[in-house]
Write a protein that binds this DNA or RNA. Structure first.
Length: 596
DNA sequence: TCTGGTTGCGCG
DNA sequence: AAAGCGCGCAACCAGA
């Protein structure tokens, strides 16, 4: 082991050092200065890593914005792999560069002028490690039932150094390095937040969850039977259909039974059933709602995902091509509103919930520089703003028009309303219309910070070629047109959804640092379920596209709320400078996270 | 009995 | 069978 570096490193690259005998896995750390030059190298036992990182984080002190006093940026193969053991040992990283997440962005970004070297390092093109099965994720290749091999990225030091050098070179020669750096920093911070939220868990009131299930479905059945209220509701439906044996869980048989009862529907989906007045419909819709609750978030889900008063879903940062997060297991992105009351703060703590009203149209107004659209939403509900500005007659119309513009609606009510937006907000509409045109042509588009859409696949290209052949049939042309339209709606939405996701990541990243600067409180007995890093301070527990929930000691709740607001303002400035767009929050503090 | 594809619905 | 984007998941179902 070498001595501490003479100067503070700007970055510390972490990685495993190949087998050295009996002392177990060893970890190497290479210190880099701000120019990327090596200024130190340290080796230590894996067990000593948390202590080492803690020293670097605590010892640095000072203002992180100030180069001399900054803590290092930790360069890691994969946040989902390195963070959990550190968090378990009570150590968190202030900043990192996640090589896997960064690689995915850089290999595709239009801003990167020389992507070849990054793309050639295909061992970094990896599906995210499955955090739900960490022991399997350690293997180089996973055999995953049905999905084949899932390659994992390399975790050794030499590979990390080489990849970091490739990425740094790609960023430096990029068209707009500042934007890319911002994007990669935000993406990596998201990786830290995801690992930390999983470690902390959402405080979950199992008794309240059980009470809700019992109230709506009846008491928990013995074994895997259906609860009593559900059985009764099913009986009601069968009587109304005069079909005592029909299986309501089988769409095919249910559809046949509905037809026999004279109900003329093409499917058993909710929206279509709603158009019928038959007495079987109301109880059937209720039954479907009950069945959904039972299978998606019933007692079985509770047993599997909630433990020790904490719900710990698996988040997948960067899991959606637009940059949104995905989830893998636990259904973190689909917690039904019915169960919101089950999110409950610990004794002596509060939940601070906040969401951004109309995030996507605001992101569109900001990135397109559409002053009229920005003004319509400034300081108020954007949809009502459109009504006030005389663009549409009602708030509902405004919503349909705006969603239609972002999703590419061409028919129905939305199709009729979108032209009014085109007239009133030409800059915003030009941006999404151009993105759609690029997609129809088979091209790619990029978000505000430079995340680029995936090009259409080989199948898509084949369809277009087939339609251009001299012997193409009408059906060929129709298929190709249809596929081109689909791709156009995808790229249209990509720039908006992706830029909104960037704003949300910047919000999250800034909020995380603000919360980490709040003082620690006296330990309370209950919150220890949040783990050593989070049991004495306000911390993030939930994030869903445009919404955050912070679990905060009661005496810190107001400070946490202020941090959420300040982070939102800061994210807007960071991405869009002085553009006259604001991102107003609906914020509430309470024992439970109730919305509406 | 296993499995890939489809349906339906929850979230933004 | 949504018009109009992005997801995950459970259940059913047809074919192996």
């Amino acid at each position: 082991m070498t001595s501490a570096p003479a100067q503070r490193p700007a970055a510390c690259v972490l990685g495993a050092v190949p087998g050295t005998g009996f002392e177990g896995q060893r970890i190497g750390i290479v210190d880099l200065d701000s120019a990327g030059q090596k200024i130190g190298r340290i080796d230590l036992a894996e067990a000593d890593l948390p202590e080492f990182v803690r020293d670097r984080e605590d010892g640095a002190g000072g203002d992180p914005c100030e180069p001399g006093g900054a803590r290092p940026r930790w360069v890691l193969s994969d946040t989902a792999k390195w963070c959990p053991p550190l968090l378990a040992a009570g150590v968190s990283l202030e900043r990192c560069h996640d090589l896997r997440l960064a690689h995915a962005i850089l290999a595709r970004s239009e801003l990167v002028t020389a992507p070849e070297a990054v793309r050639a390092a295909s061992e970094w093109d990896a599906a995210p490690a499955d955090a739900a099965a960490p022991e399997q994720a350690a293997a180089l290749f996973d055999v995953d039932a049905g999905r084949g091999f899932i390659p994992q990225v390399p975790h050794d030091l030499e590979a990390a150094l080489a990849e970091y050098a490739r990425q740094t070179a790609a960023i430096e020669t990029a068209g707009d390095p500042g934007r890319l750096r911002l994007l990669l920093a935000a993406e990596s911070a998201g990786g830290l937040v995801a690992a930390e939220m999983r470690a902390a868990g959402v405080p979950w009131d199992e008794a309240e969850h059980d009470r809700i299930l019992t109230e709506l479905l009846g008491p928990r059945p013995i074994r895997d039977g259906k609860p009593q209220k559900m059985l009764a509701k099913a009986e009601e439906v069968r009587e109304a259909l005069e079909d005592p044996r029909v299986n309501l869980d089988s769409p095919n048989r249910l559809l046949a039974s509905l037809r026999n009862a004279g109900i003329n529907v093409a499917s058993t989906s909710k929206w279509e059933l709603q158009t019928s007045e038959h007495p079987a419909i109301a109880p059937l819709l209720e039954y479907k709602k009950m069945a959904r609750l039972l299978s998606a978030n019933g007692w079985h889900w509770l047993d599997e995902w909630v433990d020790d008063g904490r719900y710990r879903p698996v988040y997948v940062p960067g899991g959606v091509v637009t940059g949104r997060w995905a989830a893998s297991g636990g259904g973190a992105l689909q917690i039904p509103r019915q169960l919101r009351p089950a999110l409950r703060a610990d004794e002596g703590w509060r939940l601070v919930s906040a969401d951004v009203a109309q995030l996507e149209p605001r992101a569109l107004a900001a990135m397109s520089g559409d002053r009229a659209m920005a003004e319509a939403g400034f300081g108020k509900d954007l949809y009502s703003g459109l009504v006030d500005a005389g663009v549409v007659a009602t708030r509902q119309e405004a919503k349909i028009a705006v969603l239609g513009a972002m999703y590419g609606s061409t028919t129905g009510e939305a199709g009729a309303l979108v032209p009014r937006l085109r007239q009133n907000f030409p800059a915003a509409m030009h941006l999404v219309d151009s993105a759609a045109e690029a997609g129809r042509q088979g091209g790619v588009v990029s978000t505000w910070l430079g995340r680029t859409s995936p090009p259409p696949g080989e199948g898509w290209q084949r369809l277009q070629r087939a339609a251009n052949r001299f012997d193409a049939t009408g059906a060929d042309e129709q298929r190709a047109r249809r596929a081109a339209g689909d791709q156009g709606r995808f790229t249209r939405n990509f720039v908006v959804q992706g830029t909104a996701a960037e704003w949300a990541l910047a919000w999250l990243a800034d909020l995380r640092l603000r919360l980490a600067r709040l003082p620690e409180i006296e330990a309370t007995s209950e919150a220890t379920a949040s783990g050593p890093v989070f049991s004495r301070r306000a911390h993030l527990v939930f994030f869903l596209h445009d919404e955050v929930i912070v679990h905060a000691p009661t005496e810190q709740a107001e400070d946490a709320a202020e941090a959420i607001r300040a982070a939102a303002a800061s994210a807007g400035r960071l991405l869009f400078g002085d553009a006259p767009v604001d991102f107003p929050l609906d914020l509430s503090i309470g024992e439970r996270a109730i919305k509406d």
